[in-house]
């Protein structure tokens, strides 16, 4: 099974790669669209800013590859910003179109005392999906507050509820970092690697 991690930014991917290795995978890092289209599992990590990630995807045909994978329900894991780019756009980078898989728009936290949010928070709400209720590590300043009815949604709360994770079939988006969320996050990665069928 080929597990590929898309290298979309400058920051580190060591945590994601190490977590996937601990979960039994042998992840490869890259940006080749053809390989990304073929990979049995594709991970879109979230580093940098919304506009930077979309620019990077649009340097090649990765935008189309991701949209096609999602339409075909082929396994994809978007982490943090990698989940946010599923939306139509973000206030972080006005005028930049996201993948548009989710109808909503990403907005900054409203009236919260401390930002960016950096810490552990409760995840609740999708008992039948891959994401069990638990505690996860979040690092972000923007968030998604709505999700379509055909996705299984888990929620977090910071100055009001927002999307902690959403799943439709083999496609999973996590606002939190499963790779940094202890044994709870590790078991989520294992479920996504092992229980989601290869198509």
């Amino acid at each position: 099974m080929e597990v590929m991690v898309l290298q979309t930014g400058a920051a580190n991917l060591a945590s994601v790669l190490a977590a996937l290795r601990r979960a039994g995978a042998s992840p490869v890092l890259g940006v080749d669209p053809e390989r990304a289209a073929r990979a049995d599992r594709l991970v879109l990590p979230g580093v940098g800013a919304f506009g930077q990630v979309m620019d990077r995807l649009d340097e090649t045909t990765l935008r189309q590859v991701l949209q096609a994978r999602i339409a075909a329900d082929r396994p994809l894991l978007g982490i943090c910003l990698g989940m946010q780019v599923l939306a139509t756009g973000s206030d972080e980078s006005p005028g930049v179109a996201g993948l548009g898989v989710l109808p909503g728009r990403v907005t900054p936290f409203g009236d919260v005392p401390i930002r960016p949010l950096m810490g552990w928070g409760a995840v609740r709400g999708a008992p039948c999906g891959l994401v069990r209720d638990g505690e996860a590590y979040f690092v972000h300043g923007f968030r998604l507050t709505e999700a379509p009815a055909d996705w299984q949604v888990s929620w977090a709360d910071y100055g009001g509820p927002y999307v902690a994770a959403l799943q439709r079939g083999s496609v999973l988006g996590c606002q939190f970092h499963p790779e940094l969320s202890g044994s709870w996050g590790a078991s989520l990665l294992r479920r996504w690697l092992q229980e989601v069928p290869c198509t």
Binding site: A18, R22, V139, H177, E179, L180, G185
Partner: peptide
């Protein structure tokens, strides 16, 4: 740091 990363599933 590399060795720590291999075992750490929390932020560092």
């Amino acid at each position: 740091i590399r060795a720590l990363r291999e075992v750490l599933d929390i932020p560092m």
